[in-house]
Write a protein that binds this DNA or RNA. Structure first.
Lengths: 254, 254
DNA sequence: CGAATTCGTGTCAATTAACGAAAAATGCAT
DNA sequence: ATGCATTTTTCGTTAATTGACACGAATTCG
């Protein structure tokens, strides 16, 4: 009776999901009795719920006749991530970055060895860098790309190595130089592009990650060098890093 | 008596999961009315189910007042995969395979009569085969699947036999042809798919096993036929086989 | 700017569908 | 075989889920 009249909860659905959660959290399968004991349900109830979950493909019987979670839960959950509207989640911090820097802000995801810009906010200043939404850039020479690359360098290094082509006199084309740059990036927490893709356009990038650490995109700021004053590199770097971290935290709350 | 008596399904649980699946499969949030229409439920019913899902943390309200799936589904599902930390164990050799072949690399596990791709590394080449992570394929017509199938053929043969359906003109639909192919696969040590699932996409697979010999997954390489030169079949076959064996050995050390 | 939809959210009584207890079946160890 | 433990089925009861209806707010349309 002490309960605050909580929101109406369909008990069947609730119990079913509890069972599913229990089964996914455990390495081996579980039997009806064990399950009912731990979740404080009747055996018959547990049994019927399990039948339903099986019919729906969320649970299967193991050879040893216990019940175990299938990969369906994972598949369903996976599509959340794939459809996750990064744009929405990042919008606020992009606005913040735009306000703070007055420069062009990008939201990028990886596609092979490129980044694709899935959103941006234009610079307010006369000199603009114009990469359209949907546009791409090589992963190893722009801020957003380098941030993402640094997070997956173990896997991607050997793939980019033979693909390093020159865009400006700043472009890193030597794999060992890239190794050093990536190491520095990981340490620093944000990536710096010193005009390696477009002449005189610097950019900065920091990763957006899911709760498990999987990097799914990056925020970036693009700045014409003439706009840069002393100390701005660190200032902007810190800003993107903070913004990207905030987005990551927002994602965790979803 | 020929009809398998329909399994008893709790409608509440079933409907709730349907809603969840719908919400996870869609980019933007959905409203009560829209959901009820698409799933053929009454508005009140949908509304209450959504309340429940919110209370349990699976659904949240968007700023625009629509309902959307949270990351909870993903978190729950992820633990299924986590409990087999195959991904970690295989990551290194997947990178190696990617580096050696430049083609798309898959890590797959069996789920019933399908394989589910739990990780992949994209090909660098322009022509890609894109099976998403979480995607599935019939066990009897792709490289990874055939590898796994060959290891459990005694048990699975009679289950797949009535399920052999045609996907391309190369698909094996005759159980005796499959018998021969499986025998050859076991001998060879790796599986070859000659474009049996997707036209002109060949694939190769080799098993990952626990120390006791239990096969828990497979590594695979997927190659558009145009990329294949003379002798590549054996070369790639040997590569996956070596990679899968190495992963198995890593697992033994855990 | 007002009218007409469309939507989300309550209410409530009818009835369905989920429930628990207990019995039947199955499996396992001795 | 015999006894214990677990899984599965059955069944009558009732509580929980349901759908129709209603209302206000928001949105669209004329």
């Amino acid at each position: 009776m002490t309960e605050p009249i909580e929101p109406r909860v369909d008990s069947t659905l609730s119990k079913g999901l509890k069972i599913l959660e229990k089964l996914t959290s455990v390495k081996a399968g579980m039997g009806v009795s064990e399950l009912s004991r731990e979740l404080d349900l009747t055996k018959s109830n547990t049994f019927r719920l399990l039948q339903t979950l099986m019919a729906l493909g969320y649970v299967r019987r193991e050879p040893d006749k216990s019940y175990a979670a299938t990969l369906k839960t994972w598949q369903v959950g996976r599509s959340v991530v794939e459809n996750l509207n990064l744009r929405t989640a990042a919008a606020e911090m992009m606005a913040y970055l735009s306000h703070e820097t007055k420069e062009t802000i990008y939201l990028a995801v990886r596609d092979g060895l490129n980044v694709v810009y899935i959103d941006k906010i234009e610079s307010l200043k006369p000199i603009r860098s114009w990469n359209p939404i949907g546009g791409t850039a090589p992963i190893y020479c722009v801020g957003t790309g380098k941030a993402i690359l640094s997070a997956n360098y173990a896997i991607l290094r050997d793939q980019v190595a033979p693909e390093l082509q020159l865009f400006t006199d700043k472009t890193i084309t030597d794999i060992e130089a890239l190794d050093r740059d990536m190491a520095a990036t990981q340490l620093r927490g944000y990536a710096v592009d010193t005009g390696e893709f477009r002449q005189n356009i610097l950019s900065f990038g920091a990763n957006i990650a899911l709760p498990d650490g999987e990097v799914i995109g990056a925020l970036g700021v693009s700045v014409p060098d003439v706009n840069l004053a002393e100390g701005d590199v660190e200032k902007i770097g810190a800003l993107v890093q903070h913004a990207a971290r905030t987005v990551s935290e927002n994602l965790a709350r979803l």
